[in-house]
Design a protein around this nucleic acid. Structure first.
Lengths: 219, 219, 219, 219
DNA sequence: AATGAATGAGAGTTCATTCAT
DNA sequence: TATGAATGAACTCTCATTCAT
């Protein structure tokens, strides 16, 4: 009976090795330019084997994206789980910090999310991984919506805030600002001003959180 | 005489006809999937002719993007030119309205800008049209920076605002929120709440502008 | 075991099948006019497969040329290897006979060498096969230089002969005369004389060898 | 009546301007790589105009070749016309000198002749210029044949020489040796010997002429 | 399970030539 | 006569995917 499990484990390991290799290859240039041959070479596997683990190139790409986003969502979930004592607003700050850290540590993942969002998530909606990825995104949204609702309840967030709208402003806006951050080389060349781009995302979040904060009753 | 002029005019007309056709084709699916054969067929021209007017597929794409963005930037310039009497903050509101209108009237152009920003503006930096497009983008930035500076001077915008940062927050953030708007079909399916997505972009802009507004001295 | 070897063998066989087909196609008209589609059709293989075995059309052409010239150089090497008892002059005669036979048996290869020499050997100097082909040519030169040196030593060739110069006269001259031979249809139409073109190359070689022969000490 | 002549003269001039331009362009890289666009640009004429003067690209190329070879044949004819006092052998030496000078002064023309001969003169046999070029070649042959016959008559050339064969040896051989000369960069890299390639063609001609010379009765 | 050879449908681009003006 | 815009057939090469072993 242990045999089936070992098999399963080995399969998972190999799948991850492929994902590692594909991540390297895809991020080295771009998912469009990178070929399945490149991935196979990097994984030290034959091209055919790739198709044993992933239905298509799109599917492989989706799996990478999924693994990346899982990291972020996982951390967010932990934060919420361990944050029973905190106000909604504090959690929102922590969540925002996770986003910044994710962008710093995994910029390529963030970029690929961006590319995907920008394309309207429209790639390969029939790929097996598509639903999973979407589920993850909606999870993320649900978490943040929950936090905001909690903040409204505990008084740390303004009661007139529409939670879903706020999430989309915060999430979408942050992503848009990341976009400019990743283009900072181009942008800064073109603009007649000095600016420390490292401030760009944090200051956006600050501004935005400040607008959500409930200042009633503070004095 | 006149011959040269007629030629020039005809050339311009044909160039525009090609752009129209290409726009249709590129936006119908995506610039990657669309082929030059498709464009030629749509323009009722031979493929070779396309290359008489545009150096490459990239160049053609760039020209489309340029024509689209020109519209927006043109309107913004007009607004500023005619707005000598207005405060910076009022102009900012008008500019934001232009952005909304552009997204409503030319969603495909906005999407393609998004796709391009998300890819880090990295497409074909040696294409003849690339510099022009970049110039247009920096023009846009410069216009908005100018408006904010004016607002700081006339007291309608908070004096502690960093103009360039604010532009990037406003522009980048709005684009990011548009991104979610364009994915509203996917997003709304996945989220356990009703929301009127038409409010998404306007409410973002309102929130953001409110945060920039100088409320000192109002009573 | 054995599997790898069989694979290797099959690969070699297929490569040769492609070369055979390409030779037919290239020689049927000309390497410029022939297309990779033609070659694929002749080899009963898909076009993509061609590129599995040869990096480019140039590379394929080079491989054909290489295989052809190998034949000639191989024979020359054998002759030298087995000719320990012979004088340099005798070897030179045998080498010349090889050249004639090669021209008779593989006129198309000779023609393609000619075309290549006439173009200054300048085709695709970065193709992987280029260096190999060049090596083969220089091998050929070295062999003949060696023979002439031997002839000078053993007294069968005049001692005042510059070996390299003689090789280039003999080789270059013969090739030039072959050129006229291959144009014999055109030439004979245009010249008011009967001539048996089959004599053209042999008589050139005779004349030339006679000029190299050491007649000292003969009585 | 002068009008027609002026027209004719102007036409001829323009034709020559095109030829000049085409020669520059074709020789700058190669006739295959050069395009009719390049030629038109160099001639400061429209592409359509080119086709008013030359039926096709091949025809244009042929006209260049013809003009080049005319130069050489013209000189040879002059030499013969003015050489009534000279022996056949002396004329042969002068003719050979012409060939060397032509190679020095118009190497590109010689190369293109070479390329054409090597391809078996097979380019565009239905081009209007083809017959003319062929006529020129046979003229050249006839001249040299005549010289050799004269030499046999006046005793300066060995009586057992077959005139046509000798011409083909001399002409073909020289061309073949030129071929190596023009590849001297490649050849000298590949051969383990120093050699002054400027000697290559002259020494070939010397060797060959010596073999034709009648030494009977000298002493 | 793993291989890797084979596929084949295109892709973008070029250019000699034509023809309406 | 001269133009130059338009053509369209061809070209080489790529690569995600399949399948016999």
């Amino acid at each position: 009976m242990g045999v089936a499990e070992r098999r399963e484990r080995e399969r998972e390991e190999r799948r991850n090795r492929i994902l590692d290799a594909a991540e390297r290859v895809f991020f080295d240039t771009s998912p469009v330019e990178a070929t399945m041959d490149d991935v196979a070479a990097a994984a030290e596997l034959s091209k055919g084997t790739l198709y044993l683990y992933f239905k298509s190139k799109d599917d492989l790409y989706l799996a990478i994206a999924h693994r990346g986003l899982s990291l972020l969502v996982g951390r967010m979930q932990e934060t919420v789980a361990q944050g029973a004592q905190r106000t909604g607003f504090e959690l929102l700050e922590q969540i925002s910090a996770h986003n910044r850290r994710f962008g710093r540590e995994h910029p390529e993942h963030l970029k690929s999310m961006l590319a995907w969002m920008a394309s309207g998530f429209r790639a390969s909606p029939d790929s097996p991984g598509f639903a999973e990825y979407q589920a993850l995104v909606s999870n993320l949204f649900r978490i943040v919506v929950g936090i905001i609702e909690r903040g409204k309840t505990d008084g740390s967030i303004r009661p007139d805030v529409n939670a879903l709208e706020a999430v989309m402003h915060l999430w979408g806006g942050t992503m848009g600002v990341w976009m400019l951050y990743f283009s900072r080389a181009e942008v800064s060349n073109r603009v007649p001003m000095l600016y420390d781009f490292e401030r760009l995302v944090p200051s956006f979040q600050e501004t935005f959180l400040r607008a959500l904060k409930n200042t009633e009753g503070e004095s």
